[in-house]
């Protein structure tokens, strides 16, 4: 179950997804976004293992043993679903046909650098399709907790973990804030209800540009 703050983050991030988009949802919080989309919204969900137009996840009793998404969940087809091989799947990503990629993060830097695949010596599962999704989707947004398990900000001036891709992130949704990456730096757009701007600043290890008049809550 999601905590209240995490649930608000995922619900807010779901508004990124617009009619007509082709969208890839990464493992973790991004996967949950699908539950918060407006019913009937005409979007095309892509999965790296060779699916466009992926349908909702299914319980084990109804699962097709041959139909999983890239995260290993059993999923379904919809009218309009297509299957293809892994080369075609990443041609779609690199070729500019993926409108939106939603990814998790270990660190996001002020210039949009993303680190989300390796903690040397500790966490080395391999990158999967993460580099291409980060580097080539038309728009890249990150969903992550604002702080890591040790209470350190995941929003940093510079990543000290190895990069997934440089300067690739357009926007970050956390349990505390919505932050845009712009040419002049990170701009705080929205803060979670119940938090003060000072609390968000204190929890963030990167400089934030703020226009108090424009600031919304979510």
């Amino acid at each position: 179950m999601l905590s209240g703050a995490d649930e608000r983050m995922v619900r807010r991030a779901a508004r990124e997804v617009r009619a007509g988009m082709t969208v890839n949802l990464g493992i973790g919080y991004p996967t949950l976004v699908v539950d918060y989309l407006e019913p009937g919204l005409p979007v095309c969900m892509h999965s790296e293992n060779g699916i466009s137009g992926q349908g909702p996840a299914l319980p084990f009793e109804q699962a097709d043993r041959n139909l999983i998404d890239a995260g290993g969940a059993y999923v379904s087809t919809l009218p309009g679903t297509a299957f293809f091989d892994s080369a075609v799947s990443f041609a779609l990503v690199r070729g500019g046909r993926l409108d939106l990629s939603m990814l998790g993060a270990l660190q996001v830097a002020a210039n949009g650098d993303l680190a989300n695949w390796i903690i040397p010596g500790k966490y080395t599962p391999g990158v999967g399709g993460g580099i291409e999704l980060a580097q080539k989707a038309c728009r890249v947004v990150v969903l992550c907790t604002h702080l890591d398990k040790r209470g350190q900000s995941k929003i940093v001036a510079q990543c000290d973990l190895p990069l997934t891709a440089p300067a690739c992130v357009d926007r970050v949704y956390t349990d505390m804030a919505v932050i845009d990456v712009t040419d002049t730096g990170m701009v705080l757009r929205e803060i979670a209800a119940g938090l003060s701007v000072d609390e968000v600043i204190a929890a963030t290890a990167a400089p934030l540009l703020i226009d108090e008049n424009e600031l919304a809550t979510f």
């Binding site: 790296e48 080369a87 990443f90 041609a91 990503v93 391999g126 990158v127 993460g130 291409e132």
Partner: peptide
């Protein structure tokens, strides 16, 4: 020994 490749690059190298 493990060699990691980005998934689409692995596919394209094989292709």
């Amino acid at each position: 020994e493990v060699e990691f490749c980005p998934q689409g690059i692995l596919a394209e190298r094989i292709r």
